[in-house]
Design a protein around this nucleic acid. Structure first.
Lengths: 244, 244
DNA sequence: CCCTGTTTATGATGTGCGTCATAGCCGCGC
DNA sequence: GCGCGGCTATGACGCACATCATAAACAGGG
């Protein structure tokens, strides 16, 4: 088996192959030659389910891209968690590393077995300096993330639980839903616990609400994946429109 | 009275003077000559208390610097508001304008009579392209804002009202507090309503908590300004440490 | 195939804080 | 100096949601 194509074992690091780099949207503006030249800065690595890539408070060393799997960026308080962002393949996180100073403001934990690609913070800063288009795209994504964080602040402060949960499902579906004969299935396998942490509530409440929606036919479940059956209704709940 | 020094009247716009530009930290990396060359892109303008600089949903035309006064960035839902950020002199906002596309994700309203300096979104984008240090600083401030938004999400989802209010006061004091013989005074004149919108609660609750803290000697009020009398105690409340 | 830990489920109970109502206060304009 | 609108204050009440408890369903692993 040729070295360049075998999968890395769980705790193994290897220099990144070009295909992996090509799959990263943030690096799409680089030519094949440029990618090949920068390749040595990246390390690919597989991580088991449930592992922490870093913990809140750690000194930020690397900037990370997710190639496969799912990662949650999470903050904790008295044993309770809130998921700040759910990372999907192609996304990056750990941006603080590229801007020096401060500790990681959140922990990063895998929800499923995952494969990540890492680059040292200073190296990524250098890369941004060499390729302004990359820097520009980072900036645009930061703005995007800030807007989403603001939206979530608004919902946490001003909206009741049900709209928050409905909104969470719809966001997930919009970001990475796969169409079904009837409805849209979430590609991410989420527990009620995860859902609760995304929406800012407790497991029990998430379970109760989901059960209710199942009974009412707004959602159903297929092979452990949540399927949005009645999108219009769910949107009505998310926006607190009086009807159903 | 020479034209260059008089104050602009309420609805008047004028080309920016260099002193104003010099007072903006984001432009600190530009030389006097560079500032003079870019000067024509900026417009200075005074706005009355309570005026909206733009509303949520408006097409984003300008990038704005605050020279004098106070501005709140706010989102609304069913008549209730949450303040996403309190803008102080030297700060900028309306960043979306520089990155095209989407509508303003929040409204900007003055809390006091204010003076702002505005530049068209495209012009600011050009400026960032010409001065990479400015772009870099924008990026760093975006990261900063994102971290603060995440912290607020955590507190809204996981912390009770009192810690949130305490944290809000401490943040305000840290950002722009002026030392007093005993304690630190907030320089921003805030109503309980404002405080409630910053902490994600209602006026009544903000009033009750503040009254309680006044009685307990944690804070007091001088000339309409809140003064933090016992910082340590307030920090204990913010971090939910069991004692007082 | 059984055993153990995780996830889903549902009821009973409690409470933090929002809501509603009323009133005193303070500054400001005429 | 009087009246008026915004702000602060305080009590009474209710409810959305957390908390606590218990159990069934399910998944994985030796």
């Amino acid at each position: 088996m040729p070295t360049s194509t075998r999968l890395p074992r769980s705790d193994e690091r290897s220099v990144s192959d070009l295909d992996s780099l090509r799959s990263i949207p943030l690096l799409a503006s680089l030519s094949d030659e440029q990618l090949a030249a920068e390749r040595a800065l990246f390390r690919k690595r597989a991580v088991a389910k449930g592992a922490f890539l870093f913990m809140e408070g750690d000194p930020p060393e690397r900037f990370t891209f997710l190639l496969k799997g799912r990662v949650k960026l999470v903050r904790t308080s008295e044993g309770k968690d809130i998921i700040l962002r759910l990372v999907e393949p192609g996304d990056w996180f750990g941006g603080v590393a590229a801007f020096g100073r401060r500790a990681h403001p959140y922990s990063a934990q895998t929800l499923t077995p995952s494969v990540v690609m890492e680059i040292r913070g200073e190296d990524f800063a250098g890369l941004m300096a060499r390729y302004p288009r990359v820097a520009q795209q980072v900036m645009e994504e930061l703005v995007e993330q800030l807007i989403e964080a603001h939206e979530m602040m608004r919902r946490l402060a001003l909206e009741p639980v049900e709209p928050r949960l409905a909104y969470t499902l719809l966001q997930l579906a919009a970001r990475s839903g796969s169409p079904r004969r009837d409805g849209v299935a979430l590609t991410t396998p989420l527990t009620r616990q995860n859902l609760a942490e995304l929406a800012g509530t407790t497991v029990e409440t998430a379970i109760r609400v989901l059960s209710k929606w199942k009974r009412a036919g707004l959602v159903r479940e297929e092979a452990g994946r949540i399927v949005i059956a009645d999108r219009a209704q769910l949107e009505a709940v998310a926006e607190r429109e009086r009807d159903a």
